[in-house]
Amino acid sequence: MLKVYSDAAVNGNPGSAGIGIVITGAGMYTQLALPLEGQWDNHTAEFEAMRLAISWLVENDQTHSITQFFTDSQVVARSIEKKYVKSETFKPYLNECLALLESISYYEINWIPEKQNKGADNLAKQGLQKAIR
């Protein structure tokens, strides 16, 4: 089983942003701290963090395990769970996440409180510092 934690950090609204991803599983521990180019609002950056986390699994042939995704964004968790988002701004991100998730054998999307997402949060802040530089 894989556990995937994602988070975003944004400086301003909109502003510079970075994302953090932690992937753990049998014999695997991967951390990603990535800067995002351009200006981002928090929700869009959170969707991008989830999209990049799913993309990493697909690109690295990690799609056959049971996978639990964790995010502290209720918007992202609920939107993916319901396969619907009202905001036109978020629809392309949701649609891309859903398309990528079709490659995952079995997955769950879970909302967790911020305090349970500290690893991804710290990496997102590192990604944000890279984006600011």
Results as ranks from 00 to 15, higher is better:
Asn110Pro: 08
Ala99Arg: 13
Ser79Glu: 05
Gly27Arg: 02
Gly20Pro: 04
Met28Val: 15
Arg133Ile: 11
Gly127Lys: 08
Gly18His: 12
Ile109Ala: 05
Met1Asn: 12
Val76Leu: 10
Leu2Ala: 01
Ser73Gln: 04
Met1Pro: 13
Ile19Glu: 06
Thr63Ser: 08
Leu36Cys: 06
Asn110His: 09
Ala77Glu: 05
Ile66Cys: 06
Glu59Asp: 15
Thr63Pro: 02
Gly20Ile: 08
Asn95Trp: 01
Ile66Glu: 14
Tyr5Gly: 00
Ala77Tyr: 10
Ser87Trp: 00
Lys86Ser: 10
Lys91Ser: 09
Ala8Met: 05
Asn13Gly: 04
Glu81Arg: 10
Asp61Arg: 13
Ser65Arg: 12
Trp40Asp: 08
Val75Cys: 00
Val76Asn: 06
Lys83Gln: 15
Gly18Lys: 10
Arg78Ala: 10
His43Asn: 15
Ser6Thr: 14
Ala53Trp: 03
Val10Ala: 07
Ala53Tyr: 02
Ile104Ala: 10
Tyr84Ile: 04
Ser103Pro: 00
Ala17Gly: 04
Lys91Pro: 07
Leu32Met: 13
Gln126Ser: 12
Lys86Leu: 10
Gln62Tyr: 11
Val85Met: 02
Ala124His: 04
Ala53Lys: 04
Leu34Gly: 03
Met1His: 12
Ile80Thr: 06
Tyr84Gln: 11
Ala120Glu: 07
Glu37Ser: 15
Arg133Cys: 12
Glu37Cys: 08
Glu114Met: 00
Ile80Ser: 00
Ala8Cys: 08
Asp41Ser: 07
Thr24Ala: 06
Asp61Ser: 15
Ala77His: 07
Lys86Val: 07
Gln74His: 10
Ser105Leu: 05
Ser16Asp: 13
Ser73Phe: 00
Ser87Gly: 00
Ile19Ala: 07
Pro92Val: 07
Thr63Tyr: 04
Trp40Arg: 07
Leu57Met: 12
Asp72Leu: 00
Trp111Asn: 07
Asp61Phe: 11
Arg51Cys: 08
Leu2Asn: 11
Gln116Ala: 12
Ile109Asp: 03
Cys97Pro: 00
Phe90Lys: 01
Leu123Val: 06
Gln68Glu: 14
Cys97His: 04
Gln116Asp: 15
Ala33Tyr: 02
Val10Glu: 02
Val10Leu: 01
His64Cys: 03
Gln68Leu: 11
Asp41Trp: 00
Asn110Met: 00
Ser87Pro: 00
Gln68Asp: 14
Val10Ser: 04
Tyr93Leu: 09
Ile112His: 02
Ser55Met: 02
Asn42Ser: 15
Phe70Tyr: 15
Asp121His: 14
Ala26Lys: 15
